[in-house]
Design a protein around this nucleic acid. Structure first.
Lengths: 211, 211
DNA sequence: TAGATTGTTAATCGATTAACAATC
DNA sequence: TAGATTGTTAATCGATTAACAATC
């Protein structure tokens, strides 16, 4: 329960990758790893890894390396993975439905507990065990509390309105799949999954490589 | 047809966002915009925007600002959006199916032309107008040429094998949705959409904000 | 002890911000 | 011309790399 000095942004962005690799290593039975080995595996430099791991309390042992499960647990703790999280989904279209069915949430203690949509085509439908509710029920549902994160998977034109609705209902964390940058008050956290943006970066690189 | 001096990485990553905003602005009928205004809109600084736009030939006009459609076209050109692209999908599970149905590809000239899977449950099924083919037909299909990008949407354990298969068949660009970092030869471009990673960053921020 | 590998400091690199002269 | 806003240089900041002493 140490007070956490805020980590450099660059380190935060690498945290999930570290966590993923360490989980894999533990699963495969690897008990220790050096910065050198991990660097090779992840395509980073050993120096960078040691800097990163040092930015949150020294977990290594000189002459030995890092204990994989100790390190994994430390990073999980930083990420706040100690407890389980409840998510709601707004927008049960293609992407929304895929997310409901997505298997890897549960492994991390993340659970989609409800889904909402406006379209009569999906409302009342059972998708992967969740019955989609009409958006009108959203605010009442959130009044109960207990929801940590809202997934915004609605069409771009209504994404900002959806965000506003969620924020007014008390949500402070948005995982946004709409290709817009949401305007939110400072106490609300947003991360965007702009999939098309990454595809365009791929296009650019292909283009650049051709000369 | 100018020789393109390779842009700073940070600029490349912002290119899709600029493109998106400029398309929106043009659609709304805005003909000119200053770095100041765009900065406010996008949550960047005016200085950064001018630096960015200057890193690829000056498109602005002193005392006036930037011409939105000229700038949009310039960025589209940098991204290589001048022509249409063919994509194939490998792995027609939840995410794969959502991608096939995803509406926004066509607007950018991106077209999923075929889908492959191993599971008898989806092979031969028609998903959004595309009949899923067995993975065995992949290599033959690619032999025809004409495919620019492969989408990897298979489960993590087979992602590397899938990538190898695609690369052997001549693919040089992978858009990867599996939560693994693919090992590829230097001539192959990969961008990852590690959705869960971004969700973990959100978790971290929530956690950090609580003190 | 000798060998290995971390923790940490210093040097380098790249990206962002600030400032202002150039110019439309 | 006067006002606005870019293009560009210089200053700052943060992140990465290099190097090595500390220590297991």
């Amino acid at each position: 329960m140490q007070i956490k000095k805020s980590l450099p942004e660059a380190v935060v962005r690498r945290l999930p990758g570290y966590h993923r690799y360490l989980c894999d290593l533990c699963r495969l039975g690897t008990r220790r790893i050096s910065s050198q080995e991990l660097a090779k595996l992840m395509g980073l430099t050993a120096s960078q890894i040691r800097q990163d791991f040092n930015s949150f309390g020294g977990v290594g042992q000189q002459g030995y390396g890092y204990n994989t499960d100790e390190l994994r647990d430390r990073i999980a703790e930083l990420l706040g993975l100690g407890r389980s999280f409840s998510l709601i989904l707004v927008g049960a279209g293609n992407i929304g439905q895929a997310l409901i069915k997505y298997a890897h949430f549960a492994e991390l203690g993340l659970h989609i507990v409800a889904a909402f949509d406006t379209s009569p085509r999906v409302v009342e439908q059972n998708i992967g065990g969740i019955v989609v509710k009409p958006i009108e029920e959203l605010t009442a549902h959130l009044a109960h509390g207990g929801v940590d994160i809202a997934i915004v998977a609605v069409p771009a034109p209504v994404a900002q309105d959806t965000a506003n609705l969620l924020i007014d209902a008390g949500i402070t964390a948005l995982w946004n799949f709409a290709p817009v940058d949401l305007q939110v008050p400072p106490h609300v956290h947003v991360v965007n999954v702009h999939m098309l943006d990454s595809l365009l970066v791929l296009l650019f690189r292909m283009n650049a490589a051709e000369k």
